[in-house]
Amino acid sequence: MSYEIALPVVLVAVAIAFIALMIEKDDLHRLLLTDLAEITGLAIIALVATDLAEALILPGLVVGISELMALSEVYLVKEGLTETPKRVMHLEVMDSAPAILGGVLVIYGIVLSGFSGGAVAGLGLLFWFFCKGHDEAFEIIETASGYSWALWIAAFFIFMLAPQYWLFAVMAAGGGILLKVMAKMALVGTMRGGRDV
């Protein structure tokens, strides 16, 4: 029963997001508003309220963040904003928090595995890179991510062609996706190009 009431409300939120998008003229503001639209879109999926809905939200989330990532980079190139920011914020907690907080998130993410784990662990790494700066780990992480993608594809075909090895496949898939998502998210942190670059 709740669906019939909740759906119109969520659609109103979608409409608000698009009205905002309609009257907004600034390019960067538009980019930010896409995030709002994304949230309302996910809300429609969330209303379905089955396990399937949940399995659909996860890809939806990843699609949103990847498009945001690509577009933000296009925006920077388009506007010619190539120089790194001159002064970077530094707080006391940025010395102390990342090691523990990032560590907890990464460990928990590895326990979770799969998409969710990848996002959580990626956030942990990203936070660490954000606070500590980074060295040139770019290539290695990217390679690892590529292999993990291949691992996941292999797992997919095991599921489809040789389902009796499902246990192996589920492990490979969980691990592959974890590494893949985590690596990509972490790399965002190194792409900040703040100090130590």
Binding site: E92, V93, D95, S96, A97, I100, L101
Partner: peptide
């Protein structure tokens, strides 16, 4: 104790 370390 861990919380203290986090909060510098």
């Amino acid at each position: 104790y861990i919380g203290n370390r986090i909060c510098h």
